[in-house]
Amino acid sequence: MANNSLLPLSVKALVIWLVLSGLGFYFQEAIGLALLPCFEVAVRMLAPGFSSSLKILQQNHDYVIELYVRLLQAVPVSSKLAFPAGKEFTASTHLMHALVPIVIEMTVLLTWPVPRFSQRLFLVAAGLVSALLICLLTTPTLLLGLIEINFQEAALSLNVIRPEPLVLTWMVYCEMGARWLLPVIAAIGCVCLQSLSIKTNKQTSVLNN
């Protein structure tokens, strides 16, 4: 990228980030409600041992996504202790936190220089699909990871080392920064996909001629 195009690109990126952040903030409840059924499916798939439900609650000035689970079977923590079936847990996360990957990915894709409007539309469409996938990979696992922390803490209080479940490992990775890696990778993937589609179109038109 030429240095003289970097300043307008930076201004464009910051304006897009500001607009998307504003839209995300004002429409967070609507976006959250639209995503909720997808999150519920993901939670059920990831944790078949729980009966679960998700809802969006308003707490002070913020919205949170709350996961409520009831154990369908006992969860052993050690040889001496198990959480019995029917035991209930809740975990919650800020709704805005769930929207950050979407803002990052869409800012990159809307800033990425493309010559034609159709290419921009392609990037946005691909970006929305991949952003949904990223949300499914991050928010339900975050909530389930928080539930798993209850079991880990119970084991720790008995000086028992409980093997860390995969969902908790993934959650920790995401919260330590992989949550930012995923939208960046997804944005790169969308740009590569778009370049590939342009090449394929060119080859097709050459063959047709």
Binding site: A13, L14, W17, S21, G24, F25, H94, M96, H97, L99, V100, V103, I104, T107, V108, R179, W180, P183, V184
Partner: peptide, 11 residues
């Protein structure tokens, strides 16, 4: 803390 700062830093 959870919304504006993380996305701005990445951008």
């Amino acid at each position: 803390h959870v919304y504006l700062a993380p996305s701005l830093i990445i951008i």
